[in-house]
Nucleic acid binder design. Structure first.
Lengths: 216, 216
DNA sequence: GTCTTAACAGAACAAATGTTCGCTAAGGGG
DNA sequence: CCCCTTAGCGAACATTTGTTCTGTTAAGAC
């Protein structure tokens, strides 16, 4: 999600980077050397070559030699996409949907969420759930928010998980801490108290990877 | 952020789409016809051509004729990216940074956030702030969250805004409602009460577009 | 003045890439 | 049998594209 600022470029080199980026967004494939010649008002492919060498040296692009349109915009490719199926919803009073092999088939899902890969941290098997209701404010989560989950039934100490409380018959999102003889479930909202429960009472339903809220 | 499922493809066509997608992610540019031949274990460029025609007809790709590597993956390009500068932080006790023309220069910013465009709803002039501290739980916002903002000093009724309260000297994120003779500021956390204030006491510092939280 | 470096132009060549044509094979229907 | 459709193959040709070489210009330093 982050790209650091890079060394200052000449205005022509900046024009070229901007052109490459714009062309890639507009066309879905990179420009050829001659596209850059005409797009940046130059007269010769060798000027483009000269400047691309510098842009590569400074880390803006990677060139794939003898490959047509072989210009990789590094600030672009460092931020990849994940396709995440939205397989259902999460509400306090019901267990969350369990992913099955079918729900991993991206094209079969009726709703796909595309997010930048750093939200998933390159993890495999991430799926999304929509929050329904207002009963999860202890997790600082709101009705309509989208939660990115990774299916797993064991989490590390201190990780936020979707936890099914068997006795209470409800789902909660909290950080899980293992203590002697009990489990501490810590809300994201620090003003609220942790709850303690028997390890037998909980079922980890997945790890919470990220939360997305669109407001406007 | 959403892409609907598409018509079922033959397994070979699915292989080709998957290959294109993977190649694009790995290389930063689309595959050539011959890349697809060798990548999908086919024997002839005309088989690729035959199948690409179908994939185009079904809406999976757009082909740019007589353009080398002119394959545009539609499920890819339909979800665009926005580059959003992270220009500072938001904490309760201080006004938020005000964007200036300088801070819009993407390459000059030290930190860039790339998000899928639907998070910004195609809006211009979106910037990002990092939340510092835990004093904004009324907005269901946590320390470390990232808030996407759009600079404006007027918002529609019911929109969530960053509001500077002059007398209290603090920032708050709330929904703004105009009532006769006063302003109602409604927290996202419904369990908490609204506050009412004089229109002269508030300064709208921007509209809240989205909130992103990475947990794992 | 000369020399060096950076930046640019133009042309030619080599290689990559797209397109098209003719053909084959398999299956189904009349 | 023939015809049609679908799916695939191979080769040749045309076009796009990358690379390299030579030369020019401009600016700065000595």
């Amino acid at each position: 999600m982050f790209a650091k600022g890079m060394k200052t470029l000449s205005s022509k080199q900046q024009d070229i980077v901007d052109f490459i980026r714009r062309f890639l967004v507009d066309s879905g494939y990179p420009p050829s050397i001659r596209d850059i010649v005409s797009g940046c008002g130059l007269s010769s492919t060798s000027v483009v070559d000269y400047n691309l060498k510098i842009l590569e040296k400074e880390g803006y692009i990677r060139r794939h030699h003898e490959v047509s349109r072989g210009i990789e915009l590094l600030a672009w490719s460092s931020v990849l996409r994940s396709q995440v199926p939205i397989i259902g919803q999460i509400a306090a009073g019901e267990p969350i949907p369990v992913p099955t092999p079918d729900t991993w088939n991206v094209t079969a899902s009726s709703e796909i969420l595309e997010v930048t890969e750093d939200l998933t941290r390159g993890r495999e098997g991430v799926y999304a759930l929509k929050v329904r209701g207002w009963s999860m404010v202890d997790a600082l989560v709101n009705d309509g928010d989208i939660i990115l989950m990774q299916y797993m039934n064991v989490v590390e100490n201190g990780e936020m998980a979707a936890i099914w409380l068997k006795a209470e018959k409800e789902v909660t999102l909290k950080k899980v801490y293992v203590e002697p003889g009990r489990i501490r479930l810590q809300p994201a909202n620090r003003a609220m108290r942790p709850i303690y429960t028997d390890p037998q009472n909980i079922e980890i339903q997945g790890r919470v990877v990220a939360i997305i809220r669109q407001l406007a």
